[in-house]
Design a protein around this nucleic acid. Structure first.
Lengths: 185, 185
DNA sequence: TGAAACATACCGTATGTTTGGTATGTTGAG
DNA sequence: CTCAACATACCAAACATACGGTATGTTTCA
């Protein structure tokens, strides 16, 4: 993507590249590595070009975060819709989504999102708001203490993944957490 | 602590202040806010004074991290020693230590330690090593999957605390996790 | 008096942002 | 249809700031 000056203009492509590379950089090397210069370089654009698409660095970060949040939102919706049993369906979707990360190459939306929210206090607040609102919708089916424990453990898992910490057998762990979402007999 | 130049010199006090304020800053505003200047100011000292006690910023960060790790290590030892039942004692200590944070004012060692290890990759590695070694000592009593789940949930809890996320009734949650550390009947 | 415990002044660098310009696309009046 | 007027999409450079670190001076204490 060299010399954008003399090529056909493709603002959507550039904008997308900026968002993607920012997320990638954050996941790979932390938020500190997400500098305007680095992102611009990765997207094949100068700092000026960067600032044309996003008025500030924070604006880009916010946009990335919002996109990731939306992606997770959609993923949860899909999983819940595909689940025949309403009871605990939200928690199951949450757990499954987290476990998907370890499998996927890019790590899905979770990896960069984790980094961002752990580093930036404002984004953390956004995450909290999002989760509260989301959980409110599922309180009837996922309000049990066991569900809360399962989700908290899931959080612990992506935290462990983030730190590349060794974990007990993933499949067994996954089964255990999913079992907690079922109605106790 | 103004004008350290003309007051009685108290190196231990200053050194302590540097460590404490660094931890406090990290917990409150992230590792990015822990600049040499900010820490020095908070401790009522100039950059020169800072550098006299710690040869570099990283040296301070490392010292803070090591101190927090030691503090947690001791806390776990004490709790385990006071626990009459060996089975699951490490996990119980871990869970209880995490729950103490929400109660304590400063947030205990966990808050700053979390921020540090989540932001700094090298410190993360140190944490992982520490935990591996620590866990190895307790594999016999705390090797069950239920123990792992309880600890992961505990991690999720201090993460929630970090983000000041609302949680279900803490006492009930604590009881649930502790129950998971007991021998299944 | 000498060393420890600071303070002051300064440097190089990296970063986010601003500015001023240029090339490309779009639109609407005649 | 066309061409002037405008808007969009960039580039290149300069700028201001904040950072970590160094070098050197000054005060206090044993």
């Amino acid at each position: 993507m060299e010399n954008a000056h003399k090529r056909k203009k493709q603002p959507e492509i550039v904008r997308r590249a900026l968002l993607d590379h920012a997320a990638r950089l954050a996941a790979a090397q932390g938020l500190a590595a997400v500098t305007v210069q680095a992102v611009a370089d990765a997207a094949g654009v100068t700092k000026g070009g960067f600032i044309h698409h996003f008025p500030s660095k924070q604006a880009l970060i916010d946009a990335v975060f919002q996109e990731l949040l939306d992606a997770i939102d959609r993923e949860l919706d899909e999983r819940i819709a595909a689940d025949p049993e309403p009871y605990g369906s939200f928690t199951r979707a949450y757990v499954e989504a987290v476990f998907r990360v370890g499998v996927e190459a890019g790590g899905g939306p979770w990896a960069p999102l984790s980094i961002l929210m752990l580093t930036d206090a404002d984004l953390r607040a956004l995450w909290v708001d999002w989760f509260q609102a989301r959980f409110e919708r599922h309180r009837a089916t996922d309000g049990d203490m066991r569900h809360a424990v399962a989700r908290l453990a899931a959080d612990g898992i992506w935290l462990a993944d983030l730190a590349t910490m060794a974990l007990p057998d993933r499949q067994e762990l996954r089964a255990e957490l999913l079992e907690m979402t079922r109605r106790p007999r």
